[in-house]
Simulated scan of single mutants.
Amino acid sequence: MPLTFTLDPPLTPELRDGVLDLWTDVSNAGGSVGFVPPVVREEIRPELVRHLVAMAEGRTRLLVGHDAEGRVAATAFLALNTHRLMIHWLWLSTVMVHPRHQGLGYGRDLMAAAADAARTCEGVEAIRLTCRGGLGLERFYASCGYKEVGRVPGAIRVAPGDDRDDIVMLLTLG
């Protein structure tokens, strides 16, 4: 059964906790969302709070996918540019699908829903995101229409002696 996506859902305690649980589970499954396992909810909470503040200030929008049971199963944050020369594109970050739902096409569905959401943002013509090298993520994003436009070798230090490339991807909206 497909996920049900909502852009800018009402921020309830249940939604906040659902996003926090998703972020924790994705991180502990090895997902490239800013943390290295093992991680607990309280380590992620401050980063989620930063996202929530940006949402309250109107700088960031939240896209949430719920599964058939109503649980938070996927998210992406759309961060609007505030620089006057860059307002024609936005950043997509913290792209997550719960491990129990991976391999079902929900990642593609999330990326399509994110592109649709970006099209609702006045003047936005493109989406940029970054991904961690070494996991094949750039191939997934390329299959969703993104093109690699930059790479910083070794910019992400996952662990001592384990540096990964920071890869910049771009989707032009049309």
Rank of each mutant, 00 (worst) to 15 (best):
P2F: 02
L3K: 02
F5I: 02
F5M: 01
T6H: 14
T6Y: 13
T6W: 10
P10I: 02
P13D: 13
R16S: 10
R16A: 09
D17F: 03
D17K: 12
D17M: 08
D17A: 15
D17Y: 03
G18H: 07
V19Q: 00
L20M: 05
D21S: 15
D21C: 10
L22M: 01
D25G: 01
N28T: 05
A29P: 02
G30R: 02
G30H: 00
S32K: 03
V33C: 13
V33F: 07
V33S: 00
F35Q: 01
P37T: 03
P37I: 03
P38R: 04
V39S: 02
V39K: 07
V40D: 14
R41H: 14
R41P: 09
R41A: 15
E42L: 00
I44H: 11
I44F: 11
P46M: 07
R50P: 00
R50G: 09
L52N: 08
L52M: 13
V53T: 14
V53N: 12
V53A: 12
M55G: 10
A56L: 05
A56M: 02
G58C: 06
T60N: 12
R61F: 03
R61I: 03
L62A: 05
L63R: 02
L63C: 10
L63K: 00
V64D: 03
H66A: 15
D67M: 01
D67S: 06
D67V: 00
E69P: 10
G70C: 05
R71V: 02
V72P: 10
V72E: 01
A74N: 08
T75V: 14
L78F: 12
A79S: 14
A79F: 06
L80I: 03
L80K: 14
N81E: 15
T82A: 11
H83I: 09
R84I: 14
R84G: 09
L85M: 13
I87K: 15
L92V: 15
S93P: 03
T94L: 08
T94N: 13
V95D: 04
M96Q: 13
R100P: 01
H101L: 11
R108I: 01
D109E: 15
A113V: 07
A114C: 08
A114W: 05
D116Q: 14
R119P: 09
E122Q: 13
G123S: 12
G123I: 10
G123T: 07
G123M: 05
V124H: 13
V124K: 08
A126Q: 05
A126M: 07
A126P: 07
I127A: 09
I127Q: 02
I127H: 07
L129E: 01
T130K: 00
T130L: 03
L135K: 04
G136M: 07
F140G: 06
A142H: 04
C144R: 06
C144K: 04
G145T: 06
G145K: 02
Y146E: 05
K147C: 08
K147M: 05
E148V: 15
V149A: 05
V152T: 14
V152E: 14
V152Y: 04
P153K: 13
G154F: 08
G154K: 11
A155S: 11
A155L: 00
A155K: 01
V158K: 02
A159Q: 10
R164S: 06
R164G: 03
R164N: 05
D165M: 05
I167G: 10
V168W: 10
M169K: 06
L171R: 15
L171C: 09
L171S: 09
T172M: 05
L173C: 10
